[in-house]
């Protein structure tokens, strides 16, 4: 950064204006002592009120039979026990995990390939990067609406194009695999470019000499990618995988709008995610206690999922070295 030039620009102005304030004394010591707390307090106050309190309160509510009106009896872990033996909950977990895999694995692979392609010398780089990133600016709701139309059975462009190859129209919302695929396409369309840019940044920080040395030794492009690029990108890949886990397990808007705003996620709940199930219990059945238990389970799943991801990728990456 241009810190030194700023130093020159800022300092004389300050010096002149503020020398008068020399009577510092007690006020200055007071300022040194309490200003830092004052500066960080907005964050912590807001977090306490709207972050920590709700989270702990969720636990409290989860231990009760808590409805919109009437009963709020303490029931202990009963809600959690019910969640654990609730087939609809496990169905939602299965859907969420399935869509996470179907969406994330191709997404990160595509992002890697895309970053590798962007990491070449060519004209119009900024334009290319903006084109790749444009989907991220589009709101999830807009993405879901547009893609739901593209995937519609009778009038969708995707079935129309598939028709060129002689395929019968697919009712994308009807089956488990097809709805998962359609929803994954929405997710990937929005996020692949973003991940590609993160990979690209990491690729550019790899020393060029490594590639030049490998090229002189006669290593092909592909070989260079596998033996230099991938190992060097390992921390970044782990990072994107964890971020995708956190995001993927909270999947909500795409499946909701894909199913025309139906919280159940299809007639057979074939694409209902955990967040949708939580929402259904809280704002459809007004069973706050049960919904809170579901949301705590979601939190635990995300925690475990991120951890597994991290351990697995570290082991895989370690083996490749």
């Amino acid at each position: 950064m241009t810190a030194s030039t700023r130093l020159r620009r800022v300092k004389p102005a300050l010096a002149g204006r503020l020398l008068a304030k020399r009577s510092a004394g007690r006020l200055a010591r007071w300022d040194m002592k309490f200003s830092p707390y004052l500066f960080v307090s907005p964050y912590f106050l807001l977090f306490a009120a709207f972050g920590a309190f709700p989270m702990l309160y969720t636990l409290w509510v989860a231990l009760h039979d808590w409805d919109l009106v009437g009963s709020r009896d303490f029931v202990g872990p009963a809600n959690f026990r019910m969640v654990l033996s609730d087939p609809q909950f496990w169905n939602a977990v299965w859907n969420t995990a399935g869509m996470f895999v179907v969406a994330t694995v191709p997404q990160l692979l595509l992002a890697l390939m895309l970053a590798n392609a962007l990491n070449r010398r060519m004209r119009g780089q900024t334009l290319l990067r903006m084109g790749v990133l444009a989907p991220m600016v589009t709101s999830v709701a807009a993405v879901a609406i547009v893609f739901s139309q593209l995937f519609s059975r009778d009038f969708g462009l995707i079935n129309y194009v598939l028709g060129w190859f002689g395929a019968d129209p697919i009712d994308w919302t009807a089956e488990r695999w097809s709805s998962w695929l359609a929803i994954s396409v929405m997710v990937d369309w929005r996020w692949t470019g973003y991940n590609a840019l993160i990979y690209l940044a990491a690729m550019q920080s790899i020393p060029k000499d490594l590639y030049e040395a490998a090229a002189i030794d006669g290593a092909s492009r592909r070989r260079q990618f596998w033996t230099i690029t991938l190992p060097m990108l390992r921390p970044t890949i782990i990072f994107t995988a964890i971020i995708s886990t956190i995001g993927g397990f909270q999947l909500f808007t795409e499946p909701l709008l894909f199913g025309n705003g139906d919280m159940a996620g299809g007639s057979l709940r074939q694409f209902q995610t955990v967040t949708m199930y939580m929402f259904e219990n809280a704002f459809g059945r007004f069973d706050y206690g049960y919904a809170s238990a579901v949301s705590w389970m979601l939190f635990l799943i995300i925690l475990v999922g991120s951890l597994l991801n991290f351990l697995w990728l570290r082991r895989v990456g370690g083996g490749a070295r």
Partner: peptide
């Protein structure tokens, strides 16, 4: 690290 959805009901 805490997902937003966690707190939505009590919020």
């Amino acid at each position: 690290m805490v997902p937003v959805q966690m707190g939505i009901i009590p919020l």
